[in-house]
């Protein structure tokens, strides 16, 4: 009987300890302070300001038909047959002497993210060979493949209902630029 009472006591203690510990861990979780910027807002990150000038969601094949000079950067594998290309024109301004321009900003949509193909990026932005200057407009290409998405998500992409978030940092501050108004080239 005595043993049973101790067992009950230990069990209740374990439950209480677990609840307290779980609450503690979650209360002190290092969650970032979130800042969501709208499409027409300017984001300052690491001494550089970024403002979205233009966003175009291209049919993947159509883009390379219109700009054959970039054909070598086209993904020809059949796995990536159904695709779109989100082309972002971003105006960059230098805000501080010490600055870092980030050319590989991740674009997040649903639970997928993309970064620009560095070779394609380089070909699209020859002005960067002389370094970055205030007022430069940088082109960021993001390939969106149907293989990474569920059917309903891909339908959202095709119906231009998908929201895209350009992520500038995650912790201690999460900065995101929401892109939901874009031109469509089918």
């Amino acid at each position: 009987m005595n043993n049973k009472r101790w067992l009950h006591f230990a069990f209740v203690f374990l439950i209480l300890f677990s609840v307290f510990r779980i609450a503690w861990v979650n209360y002190y979780a290092k969650t970032p302070e979130k800042h969501l910027y709208l499409q027409n807002e300017k984001i300052i990150s690491k001494g550089v300001s970024y403002s979205l000038e233009k966003a175009v969601l291209w049919n993947y094949d159509l883009f390379f038909d219109n700009y054959p000079e970039y054909k070598e950067y086209k993904e020809e594998d059949k796995v990536y047959k159904n695709a779109k290309l989100l082309m972002l024109d971003i105006k960059v301004e230098i805000q501080h002497k010490e600055n870092v321009f980030n050319a590989s900003l991740p674009l997040k949509y649903e639970n997928v993210f993309n970064m620009p193909d560095p070779f394609f990026f380089e070909a699209l932005n020859p002005i960067l060979k002389n370094g970055i200057h205030s007022g430069d407009i940088i082109k960021l290409p993001y390939e969106i493949y149907s293989i990474n998405l569920k059917k309903d998500q891909w339908r959202k992409v095709c119906d231009s209902e998908m929201e895209y978030n350009l992520v500038f940092s995650n912790y201690p501050e999460r900065k995101e630029l929401r892109i939901n108004d874009y031109e469509v080239m089918e």
Partner: peptide
């Protein structure tokens, strides 16, 4: 792990996810 790690969803940008967006129960 409930007593060690917070119940936070995984951000795909962290590249720590083993389940991909198109997988079962990915949401």
């Amino acid at each position: 792990y409930l007593m060690k790690l917070p119940v936070l969803g995984i951000d795909c940008i962290s590249m720590q996810s083993v389940v991909s967006n198109a997988d079962m129960l990915s949401e």
